[in-house]
Amino acid sequence: MKMNFGQRVPAFLQAGLLVATCFVSGGPASADGPYTQGALRNYNTYCVQCHGINRNGRGVNSRDMSVQPRDHSDAKGMGDIPNDEIFHVIKDGGLAVNKSVLMPAWGNVMNDEEIKELVAYLRFVCNCGSGK
């Protein structure tokens, strides 16, 4: 089922936990669900400032950026990037994959497990397959 991502976006901030609960079989964060509540919260803490509350790369910081943040709702653009590369970019930053320094390394803030969960969350946001 293709969802209208733009229309359900406000729920991410206003009722983020409720949304997460709906998608993890009605219970707490679960490895079986498409993403964990922890990943949602980490996204809303660290990623939204640049990638935006609509997950479209238009965060509050993006106005004056020389390189625009990636649009995480872009199924084609995100679908072309394998999971291990997304993991690498989050952990080690844009420079590690010859991209912009404006994407910082988050490996000192989130551990590997949290970053893996964030990758799974990004797959949910882009609605672009498993990335494997």
Binding site: P10, Q49, R58, R63
Partner: peptide, 17 residues
């Protein structure tokens, strides 16, 4: 954008404000 920024932003036609 206040403390903490994520509680004080909203979407717009362009970037979040």
């Amino acid at each position: 954008a206040g403390e903490f920024y994520t509680k004080h932003i909203k979407g717009s036609d362009k970037e979040d404000v």
